[in-house]
């Protein structure tokens, strides 16, 4: 069985005067160890899709099964807890708690998981070293560059030992050099630890680094190609 199984997913937003069908009958599967990019023009439904898969929002129709668990069956705090233990998140911005240091930010998610102080610190330092920030563990987000902040976010996403990491336009706020570096880091982590990454992007340079590219258009899967 695939890690993520998505069947006939629809999402209709009713908040506007005219309902918007942001996802239209999306059926996809993702395997462990994938390094996949979700692409498509603005408004094609990338963010909506990742929010559904990440359990941040509920689909209007269809089914999402992650590692055997049907997300629709998880109510309220069960869903929050599922996200905490199974899914890592990297957002475009505002990933970090500004009053905490890099180390504390990475530690915090493990605190939520109830992991002991020593283990938290040990793992947080390891991960920050792995993302190349071993010398900046005591810096607060405001003292780090955008690229460095996204690296901390990646370390934080991995700290909870998730099944997979979702990243919605992680490079959108970065200059091309930092974007390339972040992708290299994600590739390395994917190779070394078999971490599954699913990320959305506009950036052609980022797209070409993916091993599988899912193209959305008007909420539909237009292409699904493996390179």
């Amino acid at each position: 069985m695939a890690l993520i199984e998505i069947e006939h997913l629809d999402k209709i937003y009713n908040t506007t005067a005219v309902p918007v069908k942001a996802l239209n009958d999306v059926t996809l599967q993702f395997e462990r160890g994938e390094f996949t990019s979700v692409v498509g023009p603005s408004g094609s439904g990338k963010t909506t899709f990742l929010n559904m898969v990440g359990g941040l929002d509920r689909p209007t129709k269809g089914k999402i099964v992650i590692d055997g668990t049907n997300l629709a069956e998880l109510k309220g705090s069960k869903l929050v807890e599922f996200r905490l233990h199974h899914i890592g998140f990297v957002f475009q911005a505002f990933n970090l708690i500004p009053v905490f240091t890099a180390l504390e930010n990475v530690e915090f998610i493990m605190l939520l998981q109830g992991i002991s102080k020593e283990e938290r610190q040990k793992r947080a330092i390891e991960l920050l070293e792995a993302v190349g920030l071993g010398d900046r563990i005591h810096s607060r987000p405001g003292q780090l560059s955008g690229g460095q902040q996204q690296r901390v976010a990646v370390a934080r996403a991995l700290a909870s030992k998730p099944e997979f990491v979702l990243a919605d336009e992680p490079t959108a706020n970065l200059d091309s050099k930092s974007a390339e570096d972040l992708l290299t880091l994600m590739e390395e982590l994917n190779r070394e630890y078999q971490t599954t990454f699913i990320f959305s992007t506009h950036d052609p340079r980022v797209i070409k680094r993916a091993r599988r590219i899912v193209t959305l258009c008007d909420g539909k899967v237009e292409k699904d190609e493996t390179v």
Partner: peptide, 16 residues
């Protein structure tokens, strides 16, 4: 708001 949304997203329960 964004930061609190992020915290809920990554798995901080509402009670917390």
């Amino acid at each position: 708001i964004r930061e609190l949304g992020m915290l809920i997203a990554i798995g901080m329960k509402r009670v917390k």
